[in-house]
C-alpha cells in the first residue's frame, strides 16, 4: 500500500497509523515533522515545484518499497504557510519487522530533505522573512543511504 499526498491541509497522524495497522503488519513506525519556533520564528511558508514535487515524492516512496519488505508507506507533505507547532510532514511505515520499518522511515525523512523540490521561508512576527539555507549535515544524512544501497 502506498499513499503519497502533497497538500495544504493538516493531516491526522493517528488516522494514518490506524490505516497501516489495519494491514496487520508486525510493526508500524511513524515520523511527524513540525514547525519549530527557533529564534522567535512565528511561521514558515513552503514553496515547491508543482509537478516535479509529486513525482519526487512518489519516486522516494517507490524506492523505499523496493529496498525494504514493507506492507505500507504513507508520505504526506504540506505546502503553503504554517505557524509554529503545526505539522509539516508525515512518514508512516508498516512492515513485519522493526528494522525495516525504522530504516525505511529514516530513509524517507533524510531523502525528503535533499531530493524533493521544497523551499522553506521563515517568518517573524514583525514581518521579516528569510529563506532557510540547505545544511551540509542534511546532505550527509541523505548520502548515508547511498552507501547503504545494495
Amino acid at each position: 500500500m502506498k499513499y503519497v499526498s502533497l497538500q495544504q491541509a493538516d493531516f491526522d497522524p493517528g488516522a494514518e497509523q490506524a490505516k497501516l495497522e489495519a494491514l496487520s503488519p508486525g510493526a508500524v513506525s511513524s515520523f511527524t515533522g513540525l514547525v519549530r519556533g527557533d529564534d522567535g520564528i512565528s511561521a514558515m511558508t513552503l514553496e515547491h515545484y508543482p509537478g516535479m514535487t509529486e513525482a519526487a515524492l512518489n519516486a522516494l516512496a517507490d524506492e523505499a518499497l523496493s529496498r525494504w519488505p514493507l506492507k505500507g508507506v504513507v508520505l504526506i507533505h504540506r505546502i503553503g504557510r504554517m505557524t509554529v507547532g503545526e505539522r509539516i510532514v508525515q512518514v508512516t511505515i508498516a512492515s513485519d519487522h522493526r528494522a525495516a520499518a525504522l530504516e525505511a522511515c529514516a530513509f524517507l525523512i533524510d531523502r525528503l530533505k535533499t531530493n524533493a523540490p521544497f523551499w522553506k521561508q521563515e517568518e517573524w512576527s514583525d514581518g521579516k522573512c528569510r529563506w532557510v539555507e540547505a545544511k551540509c549535515s542534511d546532505d550527509a544524512a541523505a548520502e548515508r543511504w547511498d552507501q547503504a544501497a545494495k
Binding site: 513552503l46 507533505h77 509539516i88 510532514v89 525528503l112 530533505k113 531530493n115 524533493a116 539555507e133 540547505a134
Partner: peptide, 26 residues
C-alpha cells in the same frame, strides 16, 4: 524537464528548465 542536473549538463531538447536554491524540505 523536472529532473535535477549538474551545471555541466547538456540542455539538449529541453522544454522546461528551472533554477532554484538548494532544496530545504522535510
Amino acid at each position: 524537464d523536472q529532473s535535477i542536473v549538474a551545471q555541466d549538463a547538456s540542455i539538449g531538447v529541453a522544454k522546461e528548465i528551472a533554477f532554484f536554491p538548494p532544496v530545504t524540505g522535510g
